[in-house]
């Protein structure tokens, strides 16, 4: 009978926790939805990267610049689809929600930045800037969500691996020998630029060591070219022509 009703009477506790239960369920459900969208972004971004490589290794009569522009245009088309998904996530990421869920969307975001920066490099030969990336994630100037500097840098850092693949497969192509030198200098600059930033961004140091390996692979390839060419006293494009004539007539 004289149940001590005064202490946080059970009903009050239940009411209070009812609220928590809903909040936790909401958080979990949102987390799941974002993880799924992030997986989609990752997969589509990987496809864009393959597409760019595919176009850049096509056998064609176009000059290299025209080819690169065509690749970038095709890539940009597909990147739009990804931007649409990222845009659709913004309702789940308003205000406080973005940083609550940042870790869940990070993998997708970084892969997107890798793909985007690859397309950008092909078109302009430069690293895409932070503002440019943020602009692709905006609707009429209003960002979908704040772009974390760490995701921007970690995404860019992955680019060097793709550039290595690009440089190696460019070598057997006409003019590709020069391309390799170009990419080599570019990646060397990337490495230098990122070196100063490693203490600030978790995970960047590890990616930097991958960049290092990629750079050495490009250097080794450039070396192999230089050594072969050295035996002949003619400019490389003339040599290229002789080989081409010899092989395909």
């Amino acid at each position: 009978m004289s149940q001590p009703q005064t202490l946080g009477s059970k009903d009050t506790v239940v009411q209070l926790f009812q609220h928590f239960a809903e909040e936790l369920d909401d958080q979990n459900d949102r987390r799941e939805r974002l993880i799924k969208s992030s997986r989609d972004v990752t997969n589509l971004s990987k496809k864009v990267i393959f597409l760019l490589h595919r176009i850049m290794t096509e056998e064609t009569d176009e000059d290299d610049h025209t080819l690169a522009l065509r690749a970038a245009t095709s890539g940009r088309q597909k990147l739009k689809d990804i931007q649409k998904i990222l845009g659709s996530m913004q309702v789940e990421l308003r205000g406080n929600l973005f940083w609550q869920n940042q870790k869940n969307i990070s993998p997708g975001l970084q892969e997107y930045i890798e793909a985007l920066s690859f397309a950008h490099y092909l078109e302009h030969g430069t690293l895409i800037s932070f503002q440019e990336v943020q602009e692709t994630l905006s609707d009429n100037g209003a960002p979908f969500f704040p772009l974390p500097m760490s995701d921007y840098l970690l995404g860019l850092s992955d680019l060097t691996g793709e550039l290595m693949r690009y440089a190696i497969s460019a070598i057997p192509r006409k003019g590709g020998r020069m391309k390799a030198d170009e990419v080599c200098s570019f990646v060397r600059r990337c490495k230098a630029d990122f070196a100063g930033l490693t203490p600030f961004v978790k995970g960047l140091a590890k990616k930097q060591s991958v960049t290092n390996q990629s750079l050495q692979k490009i250097e080794d390839a450039a070396y192999a070219i230089a050594v072969r060419t050295s035996e002949f006293d003619l400019p490389p494009d003339i040599l290229d022509d002789i080989v081409a004539r010899c092989v395909s007539g």
Partner: peptide, 19 residues
């Protein structure tokens, strides 16, 4: 007193779906 208090509180906790 503690027993009654903690049981009530536990009932609240058991309403939650935790990761």
């Amino acid at each position: 007193r503690i027993s009654i208090f903690v049981k009530d509180l536990f009932a609240g906790f058991s309403m939650l779906n935790l990761k």
